[in-house]
Amino acid sequence: MKTLLTTLVLAAYITHANADETYVAVAANFAAPAHKIAAEFEKRTGHKAIIATGATGKFYAQIVNGAPFDILLSADDETPAKLEKEAQSVTGKRFTYAIGKLVLWSPKPAIVDANGDVLKRGGFDHLSIANPKVAPYGAAAVETLKALGAYEVVQPKLVVGENIAQTHQFVATGNALLGFVALSQVLKDGKIEGSSWIVPEKLYSPIRQDAVLLNKGKDNKAAAAFLEFLRSNKTAKDIILSYGYSL
C-alpha cells in the first residue's frame, strides 16, 4: 500500500514536472483555430497553452511594457519583425503560421454577389472594415476597395472596428449590412452563411501572419513545444486550413 501511494505521488509529481504552461497572445482573427489547436496540443503533450485574444497592436504595447506572454501569434508579419528588431523576442524563431484571406460578407442572402459588384452598386448604409491603420485585414480591405476603384464612393459609408472581431460584430448584429472580415470568422464546416465574396488574392497584398517566441518564453519548454506543434503537426495544420487560411 505504501509503495502504491509513493508511486502515485511520484507519478503525479513527474507528470506535473513535465507539464508546463505557456501564455499565448493571439490575434483576434485566429481566436477560434487557436483554441482548437491548444486543446489538441494539451491532449498530445500534456502541456497547457493559455490563449489570450485581442488586437495585435495592443499586444505589442503590452509586450513592450512587460506583459507575461511567451508567444505572439500576430495578425501580420510587421509586428513580429519589429519585436525581433527591438530585442523583445528570440531571434530566428519567427515563422509564418497562416496566410489570412479576406472576405466581403453579409449575414443576409443575396446582398453580396460573386464579383463584389455590390460595392460599386451601393444600396447599403454602412460598410464595416477593421481599422486600416492598425489591423492587417483593414489595410487589405482598403487596398481591395482602391483596386476596384470603389474607395471614394464607399468612404462616407465606412464604419471602423478596432479589430477584426468588432468589425464582424457590426455586421453580425445587422448594424452594418456588409463588411470585410476574415474568412476564418465566417467559415463554418466549409460553408459561409448569408452571402459572401472571397476577395481574389491579387487585389491585396498577402496577409502573412507570423508567430514569434518572446523573451519571456525563452526557457519555457511548453512554449517551444507549442511553436513546434503549430509549425509542423499535421492536425494543427489541418485545423488552420479548415478555417480558410492557406499555408
Binding site: 497592436g57 492598425v134 465606412l158
Partner: peptide
C-alpha cells in the same frame, strides 16, 4: 464605428494612436 467628425471622440482618437504605436 470610429467615424471622423461624427463619432470619433478624443478618447477613441487616443486609443487609435496608441494602437498604431
Amino acid at each position: 464605428g470610429n467615424i471622423p467628425d461624427k463619432t470619433r471622440v478624443v478618447s477613441v482618437q487616443i486609443y487609435d494612436y496608441v494602437e498604431a504605436l
